[in-house]
Design a protein around this nucleic acid. Sequence first.
DNA 1: GAGAGTACGCACTTTGAAGTAAGGTACTCA
DNA 2: TGAGTACCTTACTTCAAAGTGCGTACTCTC
Lengths: 125, 125
Amino acid sequence: MDATLQPAPLPLSFSGGVFPAGCPSRTLLDHVTSKWGVLILIALSEGSQRWSELRRRAEGISEKMLAQTLKTLERDGLVSRDAQPVIPPRVDYSLTEKGYELSALLVPLVAWTFDNAEEIINGRA
Amino acid sequence: MDATLQPAPLPLSFSGGVFPAGCPSRTLLDHVTSKWGVLILIALSEGSQRWSELRRRAEGISEKMLAQTLKTLERDGLVSRDAQPVIPPRVDYSLTEKGYELSALLVPLVAWTFDNAEEIINGRA
DNA sequence: GAGAGTACGCACTTTGAAGTAAGGTACTCA
DNA sequence: TGAGTACCTTACTTCAAAGTGCGTACTCTC
């Protein structure tokens, strides 16, 4: 590995400190990069989906965590909830515009992780 | 918000299930999206750095977590450690090629988070 | 010779994210 | 009448991630 490799370009914003502790960005980053947050955002990036569908897509999530994650993302304005007053209840979840912006950045990251996971985790050098 | 918004393109890889529970990708995703993992990778994307410099950049990290995070990332082959046998000790950390690939995807995500955090967290609609 | 800097390792404690379990409503279907 | 579906809520528990604090071995400065 060459030590003179070119550093990735970084916006001026955090040249010299990543970003400060206790500021809103840390909170938002925590929501976005949380275990289930990522999976829900990725799932929704394929389009509007219902509760039970999300449960299946995000394999292993409990109902409590699904509700909690959706609520957090909704409060952050990344996910919108559309409840129709029909019986049985029908609720559709989808990404807002900001949510799409985010997922557009998240998807390549997750894809990379997916592609490199086996090589890295199993056959670690 | 228009329900007919165009879904983001998603690689075939996980059309129909995000990805399975208990597979290596979940583990790697956890490492990469962990609270301190992100910050360290972002900090290192600006180039090789020493222990104490990383401590300052990732504001709020404890020595224990710094050591632990670096060790995890090193085992995953994302960070390389270069210890020089001088006194006082001098250890430089940098990204491997895989680490650079990752950080190239991570940086825009963090930048977006940084730009939108205040609007989202403070003035939530 | 007292204190600070450098790069950790180890043990103990705390916190909070996540899991488990159960209940509730307003229906439909057999 | 009883089971099942869809969409949750609340309460209790657990466990791993993270924090705290101390020790080391050496050197350089005040």
